[in-house]
Design a protein around this nucleic acid. Sequence first.
RNA 1: GCGAGCGUGGCCAAGUGGUUAAGGCAGUGGAUUGUGAUUCCACCAUUCGCGGGUUCAAGUCCCGUCGUUCGCCCCA
Length: 432
Amino acid sequence: MGSFQSPRGTRDILSPEVSYWQWVEATARTQFAQAAYREVRTPIFEETALFARGIGEATDVVGKEMYTFPDRKDRSLTLRPENTAGVVRACIQHSLVAPGNLQRLWYCGPMFRYERAQEGRQRQFHQLGAEVLGSADPRADAEVIALATDLLQRLGLSNLTMALNSVGDGRDRQAYRHALVEFLTPYHNDLDPDSQDRLSRNPLRILDSKDLRTQAIVADAPSILDHLSPDSKSFFDRVQQSLTDLGIAFTLNSRLVRGLDYYTHTAFEIQSSDLGAQATVCGGGRYDGLVEQLGGPSTPAVGWAMGLERLMILLQRLQEPPAMALDFYLVSRGAAAEAQALQLAQQLRRQDFAVELDLSGSAFGKQFKRAARSGAAACLVLGDAEAEAQTVQLKWLTSGEQLSLTQVELLEDVEGLRSRLALAAAALATSA
RNA sequence: GCGAGCGUGGCCAAGUGGUUAAGGCAGUGGAUUGUGAUUCCACCAUUCGCGGGUUCAAGUCCCGUCGUUCGCCCCA
């Protein structure tokens, strides 16, 4: 072919679908505003070392999924594969993190990972995320998680489950890793090949292997929850209590492990069974060591990220897209009428009406057909006779009622029009 | 990175080696030079993702390539 296609793993978000995106973004925006979270917009690419150090050299994300490239001065840059590292970097750079200083932030934007696409997984995808920096209080964990569950609820999504775990602090994890490796080593040859490999590299990941034989072995493995220090244990208890107080349902899953190295203590995932292999809609947890790891002051933090493509899959199954609201469709024919219609459309828009002007110049019949399909509440008609008399026909498309009035009258009766439009919209809503 | 399936107009498709590439939706023009429905007529793929090969003959078989889908790995 001679034409271009969007690159592998990327896609265009077109008209009916894009209204879901706008709806989700608008809902998130108000939700975050109500909880006093501020939006951050960080660069889409960062120094490669930021991700390598933040996410962890040994992780798959860093090891094989990053879009890394040299710029013209041979600096190594990387398209962000996630945004926590970038947000933390921004907070350090602008001194937003300091002892006793709390930052509540949210973001939304594209992320990039070089992976084979499948349902709910693309090379360019979008995440909505929340981060709280500077609080070691378990209520911060609960607040941030509640924001995620509330948002999903506002969007009308039920049928989601939340898995919760604690991976403890660094020392707890170290101890647990030992215990786990000790337990698994005798079964080495019975593990699936991937897990055999992970035994030395990243043994915790064996816990959520999808291989059935491995799962059977892991079923009797020691639980991380038995390896938590008293402090870690009590912290996790308080997180659970806070969630319960908020009426947020969760299932403890001691085998829940997250793939990024920076997580400590609380780890959670919100999952749907309607998503195929990519079940996680939202994942996050506490990352108390990351700020320091990236060169800032020791600062506790919690956060999560939500995969918007996955969210859209669920939303599109549940409900029709919100329709584009159009007040008037303007039909005209004849040189004088067309000129007046162009001006009338602009004047109405300045009064905050949504107006579509038919530019086809085709027969009235065709234009009316388009008017009916446009979803507009009313149609305005300008032909030779109207142009001559400076009038306009106003036709309500729901009832078919039509009246003639002067263009001046139309523009002066803004309040009357607005209430009629509200009625028409209500009629549409009940008929739908 | 690995495994398997798929790729025919804007969309949904029939077609499984013989040829003039069905059909539906949408669109455009007209019947109807000023009113949304219905109906009717006409137009809408020198070509089947792209490149090569086999064959007298290829949308149909083979190879490659690109894209896509499902799964693995991994993650949101």
